[in-house]
Every structure is written in structure tokens, then in C-alpha cells.
């Protein structure tokens, strides 16, 4: 299986509670711009292939193909079914799932796509490109809970900018929500405190690549 063709395996992360481990994979979209057609034929399901021409923007098509290909390849490793034949469905909150007893989650931001997979428990993963977030104070007020706002303050106290602090706290929150399979609109009612999340800084930094991993923050959560 040409796993090294798409993406690199970032590493295995163990859940704090000892409830399981997750593998985290990563891919750089730009690296595979020329291989979109090939990946499409090789790894994507028939429905996914049919959707590719619907994308009116080139970059969107590339992101779609690379993401789906990565997911299938990674899942294939775990469940032993050829990538093309894996059946991916969605929950009613829109989370993609497979029925074969493997949990996975996908995220992308900028040029980066991450896939986390675990045989033990549901996982959520989120990555965000670091940047100056406009009107970040409005976002903090609107979307974060009281304790999350405290977290932001703590990060700031350590010298981070408000944008960076927000992105860190946000990616942890998103990872949790995605592990629970809940969208942001369900955040108020979700038992987020029960979901462990940890940042992915160490994994990102350990990657040997010409790409700028420092430009991203990420988090992984186990439900």
C-alpha cells in the first residue's frame, strides 16, 4: 500500500486516561497538486470521484481529493479493506464515520490536513493556521465558556498574543466537540469537561519537513 505517497504518519498518541491510543496522520495539500487525478482514481469511492468536477475552484478540488485519499488510506491500514471500498457515512450531526469499529476524525486548515484514527475510542482532531484573528474579542465573547475564557487569559499571561491564545483554546474546544460528534451549535449542552484534549505541538514540531509546522496549532481529544 503506497502509504508514503500521501501523507506522513505523525505519530501515535496515547489517551491520558489510558483508554486508548490514536494514530495521527498529516498531509500537505500543495505537495499533491499534480496527483489529484491519480489519487482520485486510485483511492476515492465512486461517489467521491463524481463530486470532484463539481468543485469550481481548483484548490477546493485538490483539498477534497487529498483529504479523502488520506482518510481512506489511513482507514485501510486499520481495517484491511482497500481504500476505495471503504464505506463512509455521516451521523445526523454530519460527522463522517465508518461502521467497522474504527473511530476517526479529519481536520484541515490552510495547507494542512490531519487525520486521527483510533480503534479504542472516539477521537476528535482540530488544526488551525496561526494568524491574526480579526475581532478576536468578539469571538471570545460569543463562543467561549467562562472557563475557556480563563484559559485564554492564562495563555496571555504567559506572553501569547490574544489571537494565538484564542486559537489554542479554540482548537482544544473543537477537538473535544468533534470527538463527541457535536457541532459548535450543540456546544452549550455538550459534556465537554469529560473529554480529554491535548495540544499537538510536540507532534507537529517533531516532523521533519520543509513546510512550516510552526504556523499551526492543533489539538487531539479522546471521548
Amino acid at each position: 500500500m503506497p502509504s508514503s505517497d500521501v501523507g506522513a504518519r505523525l505519530g501515535t498518541v496515547a489517551a491520558e486516561t489510558g483508554s486508548g491510543v490514536a494514530d495521527v496522520w498529516l498531509a500537505w495539500i500543495g505537495d499533491h497538486a499534480r496527483e489529484v487525478d491519480a489519487f482520485s482514481r486510485e483511492y476515492l469511492s465512486a461517489e467521491e470521484r463524481a463530486r470532484v468536477p463539481e468543485y469550481r475552484i481548483r484548490e477546493a478540488a485538490e483539498r477534497y481529493v487529498v483529504t479523502r485519499a488520506l482518510v481512506r488510506i489511513v482507514l485501510s491500514q486499520h481495517i484491511g479493506v482497500p481504500p476505495r471500498e471503504i464505506r463512509v457515512t455521516r451521523t445526523d450531526t454530519g460527522k463522517p464515520v465508518v461502521t467497522d469499529g474504527v473511530h476517526f476524525n479529519v481536520t484541515h486548515s490552510g495547507e494542512l490536513v490531519l487525520v486521527a484514527v483510533s480503534e479504542d475510542c472516539p477521537v476528535g482532531v482540530d488544526v488551525e493556521r496561526k494568524r491574526e484573528v480579526a475581532r478576536v474579542d468578539a469571538l471570545i465573547a460569543r463562543w467561549l465558556t467562562e472557563s475557556e475564557r480563563t484559559d485564554v487569559a492564562q495563555f496571555r499571561a504567559r506572553g501569547l498574543t490574544e489571537s494565538d491564545a484564542f486559537l489554542r483554546v479554540w482548537s482544544l474546544k473543537e477537538a473535544r466537540l468533534k470527538a463527541l460528534g457535536v457541532g459548535i451549535s450543540g456546544a452549550a449542552r455538550a459534556p465537554l469537561h469529560r473529554v480529554r484534549a491535548r495540544p499537538l505541538d510536540d507532534l507537529l514540531e517533531s516532523l521533519v519537513t520543509q513546510h512550516d509546522t510552526h504556523g499551526y496549532v492543533g489539538a487531539l481529544a479522546f471521548a
Binding site: 469550481r56 475552484i57 490552510g110 488544526v127 463562543w143
Partner: peptide
């Protein structure tokens, strides 16, 4: 392109909530 989707423009989750806000 108004006939394209916002998703096509590659919004990550922060951008999505920014947009909604």
C-alpha cells in the same frame, strides 16, 4: 463565485465561527 460554496473557499473552523459571528 456566488454559485460556489463557502466550504469551497476552505474555511477552517475558526473562520467559520468568525463568519457566523
Amino acid at each position: 463565485d456566488p454559485t460556489a460554496s463557502v466550504r469551497d473557499y476552505g474555511l477552517d473552523s475558526v473562520a467559520a465561527v468568525r463568519l457566523v459571528t
